[in-house]
Nucleic acid binder design. Structure first.
Lengths: 239, 239
DNA sequence: TTCTATTCTTGACTTAAGTCAAGGTGGATT
DNA sequence: AATCCACCTTGACTTAAGTCAAGAATAGAA
């Protein structure tokens, strides 16, 4: 991996991918090439651990394909997912800018491909190119917003509201129809962990919504039948 | 406030203050002066609202004196404090790097003095001086760590553990003694809101710890009598 | 296809924490 | 010193969500 020739061999292909990553948007072709020569490609199989909490990190990751979860574990094994990272997204940025250890675990939910960028290389990039630092700041600010939303959900909303909000966010990409079908790309157990609950409670909540004809559930496909009502529930209305 | 002469009048004094702010550490005297000419001083009285959720912001704040809380409110009025900002700390950084609205409220817990920096000025500073962007990234990464810790507490710890962890963090500045006295600078109602609970539950929890001789409570002064036990509780042990 | 192993669901029960209501305490203000 | 008001505490009760255990459904592997 440390052989520069090996990296160069792939740089053209990498450049095409890196061009798509929001973090590197607005960069000149020259800078894109520079970045693409610095990243290292790594592959992880479904379920494989990428980062474990407390580990010291030398850089951060960009997801190229697949799906990665960033999560905490409690002393008795309960899992809280902080972030589901899709292609184009980054994780472990925190490690790149503060000394110290990773605050969370990360693992591949599906077979995944990631790019790794060393923090020293990133810092050099930033020193030479303020645009990258502004992108990075915007990306971190976006992630901050996300974490604030997670805190709001955990502290101020009940499970039905969290579920409804999560599904509404997923549905947001699908336009303005009133009946919306959503396909979960994670297991219900993982969805429960993302919502700060357990699978039994999620199951019961889905059931309650189903019996009120607000949604329809068939395996991993959930159909929102009554969007208006669903929005009320996301905002805190009782089922 | 927009009269440059007015700003200049204070710049020497401001410079002394800004030198102390971690965000601006490592800057040259020239840059420190430049920053000090850009900030605007604002004062807020105890309880006064500084930012309200949804508001559009033109920049971010640095606390100079006093104490500021950043918090969310639920539809039925419950409050969750995200961040207590002490002098030298910043808030609303998110607004400086993403378009859109403030994700939370901020208000002064005590009479407070803050500096305000316009985002356009900050972006100019960053373009000219990568050190500021690295400081800013480090500051945001630090805040991310904090929010991750808050999520961990809310999702994976019970109220006694959250309380113990909070107090241990406060005590961290006080060296290695086994009996530590802590003076709360916020009300117990606010402490409850920070811990994601309500004052009744906090009251009962303090009582339980008191009756087990782990702590002593006298008004806003809490004494940790059994640090070892307290650490176990913070890590999840039952009281 | 059959077998196996997760994942998911359901029921009965427990529990931590919230709600509601009443009373106590202490600091600020006149 | 008396009054006020917000803060805090305590008790009785409710409730949302977790635990435990058993069975059903589903997806992967052989």
């Amino acid at each position: 991996m440390k052989n520069p020739d090996y990296r160069n061999q792939y740089s053209k292909e990498y450049e095409q991918v890196i061009r798509q990553v929001p973090l590197f948007s607005g960069l000149s072709p020259l800078d894109l090439e520079r970045v693409s020569r610095l990243v290292i490609r790594r592959k992880f199989r479904k379920g494989q651990l990428i980062i474990s909490e407390g580990q010291e990190l030398e850089g951060f990751y960009i997801v190229i394909s697949g799906q990665v979860k960033v999560y905490k574990l409690s002393s008795d094994g309960k899992q809280q997912i902080l972030h589901l990272v899709a292609p184009g997204g980054t994780f472990a940025e925190v490690a790149a800018f503060t000394k110290g250890f990773s605050p969370a675990n990360a693992s591949a939910i599906t077979d995944s491909e990631v790019f790794f960028l060393f923090k020293n290389d990133l810092i050099k990039l930033i020193r030479d190119n303020p645009q990258i630092s502004l992108n990075m700041l915007a990306s971190m600010a976006q992630y901050l917003r996300h974490l604030v939303a997670v805190i709001e959900e955990l502290a101020l909303k009940d499970v039905p509201a969290r579920l409804a909000k999560y599904l509404m966010d997923l549905a947001a990409g699908q336009g303005e129809r009133s009946v919306i079908e959503i396909k979960l790309v994670i297991t219900k157990k993982e969805l429960a962990a993302r919502l700060g609950t357990i699978s039994e409670t999620l199951s019961r909540t889905l059931n309650k919504l189903k019996s009120k004809k607000v949604i329809k559930v068939a395996g991993n496909r959930i159909t929102i039948l009554n969007k208006a009502r669903f929005e009320e529930i996301a905002a805190g209305a009782k089922i």
